[in-house]
Computed example of a mutant assay.
Amino acid sequence: MGKQKEPIALVEAKGRKHLTKAEKAEREASEPVLSAPASGEGSKIRAPVWLPAYLRDDFNDLRTQLVEAGIFSKLDRDTLGRYLVAQRQYTAAMRQVSDALDAQDVEAVAAWGKEQERCFKQCRACAADLGLTISARCRLVIPEALRPKEDPEEAAFLKLLEGRRRDA
Rank of each mutant, 00 (worst) to 15 (best):
G2F: 01
K5S: 15
P7G: 10
P7E: 09
I8D: 01
I8L: 14
A9H: 09
A9W: 05
L10A: 15
L10D: 08
V11I: 15
G15D: 10
G15Y: 00
R16V: 08
H18M: 06
L19M: 13
T20N: 01
E23V: 13
E23Q: 15
E23S: 07
K24S: 09
K24V: 12
A25Q: 11
A25N: 12
A29H: 09
P32K: 03
P32L: 04
P32C: 05
L34T: 11
P37T: 07
A38V: 00
A38P: 06
S39F: 00
S39Y: 06
G40A: 11
G42P: 02
G42H: 05
S43F: 01
A47Y: 01
V49E: 11
L51H: 07
A53D: 11
N60G: 10
R63S: 09
V67G: 04
A69F: 09
A69S: 14
A69C: 06
I71F: 07
I71K: 02
S73Y: 09
L75V: 13
D76C: 11
D76G: 02
D78W: 05
D78Y: 05
T79L: 12
R82M: 13
Y83V: 01
Y83W: 12
Y83N: 10
V85S: 06
A86E: 03
M94R: 12
R95F: 00
A100R: 09
D102T: 12
Q104N: 15
Q104C: 04
Q104W: 01
V106R: 07
V106T: 13
E107A: 14
E107S: 14
A110R: 12
W112L: 05
G113E: 03
E115G: 01
E115F: 04
E115L: 11
E117K: 12
C119H: 11
K121M: 12
C123W: 06
A125L: 05
A125E: 12
A128P: 00
D129F: 07
L130F: 04
I134A: 11
A136L: 02
C138E: 15
R139L: 02
R139F: 03
R139G: 04
V141I: 08
I142V: 14
P143N: 10
A145K: 14
A145R: 13
P148M: 09
P148V: 00
E150H: 08
D151E: 09
D151N: 10
P152V: 04
E153R: 13
E154P: 01
A155S: 14
A156C: 08
F157K: 11
K159M: 08
K159L: 13
L160M: 11
L160N: 15
G163P: 03
R166E: 10
D167Q: 15
